[in-house]
């Protein structure tokens, strides 16, 4: 564990909690892509099957469980409790366009051709692109609520911090995982445009709107 990974994990946790609290307190999930949330639930489910096979530490298991429970809670709130506020007309990205190619890639490019390893690889690849339905939704409506943009910023920062962690681990431990690094870089790049808008607009107190 190093400081970058810890900050990355906390940033990830913060993002998940911001989203849950936003939905809970406003009793509305308007502007949030349910499809991205389903994909994230799928990411955590396929990656954290290692809870049953590898015990690392209490911290590790607890965080994995919290991520899992929170992501399912978010999906539940969106598709059941506050379904009436879900903006499905704008959430039109087709999940199969991500899940099918990512599944194929996980079969072809992995460290070891075993079920758990393929599922882990699948989760890494899927996480890289799982935010696309949300970004697509924002590009359709042309705006995002400020709280939603804080969520996205925390979520994007998490993978950016992980990249620093991987550089650090490479130099201090000689550890690197090419699959995670490449996917993590792709994931972070997807957020770059959003980061720019966040810094130039949201941090100056304006709402996030896309240039016409």
């Amino acid at each position: 564990m190093n400081i970058f990974r810890l900050l990355g994990d906390l940033s990830h946790l913060l993002a998940i909690i911001i989203l849950l609290l936003k939905i809970w307190r406003t009793r509305s999930c308007a502007g949030v892509s349910g499809k991205s949330q389903i994909l994230f639930a799928l990411v955590f489910t396929t990656r954290y099957l290692d809870l049953f096979t590898n015990f690392i530490s209490m911290y590790n298991s607890a965080m994995k469980l919290i991520y899992l429970v929170c992501s399912y809670a978010t999906v539940f709130l969106m598709y059941f409790k506050f379904k009436a506020t879900y903006d499905s007309n704008h959430d039109t990205f087709r999940m199969e366009f991500l899940v099918v190619p990512v599944g194929g890639l996980a079969f072809l490019v992995n460290h070891d051709f075993t079920p758990l390893e393929i599922l882990w690889t699948f989760s890494i690849y899927l996480e890289a692109v799982a935010i696309l339905p949300q970004l697509f939704m924002i590009s359709k409506t042309g705006e995002a609520e400020t709280i939603t943009s804080h969520y996205l910023f925390a979520l994007g920062s998490y993978r950016a911090l992980y990249i620093v962690n991987w550089v650090f681990r490479f130099y201090t431990e000689g550890f690197f995982d090419l699959i995670a690094i490449v996917a993590g870089c792709v994931q972070t790049i997807l957020y770059c445009d959003f980061f720019y808008l966040y810094i130039t607009k949201v941090l100056k107190g304006k709402q996030l709107t896309l240039p016409a």
């Binding site: 990974r5 290692d50 690392i56 590790n60 994995k64 460290h111 390893e117 882990w120």
Partner: peptide, 10 residues
């Protein structure tokens, strides 16, 4: 070795 390490990351 890499197979053990990665379960450490979230």
């Amino acid at each position: 070795e890499a197979l053990i390490d990665k379960h450490d990351e979230l």
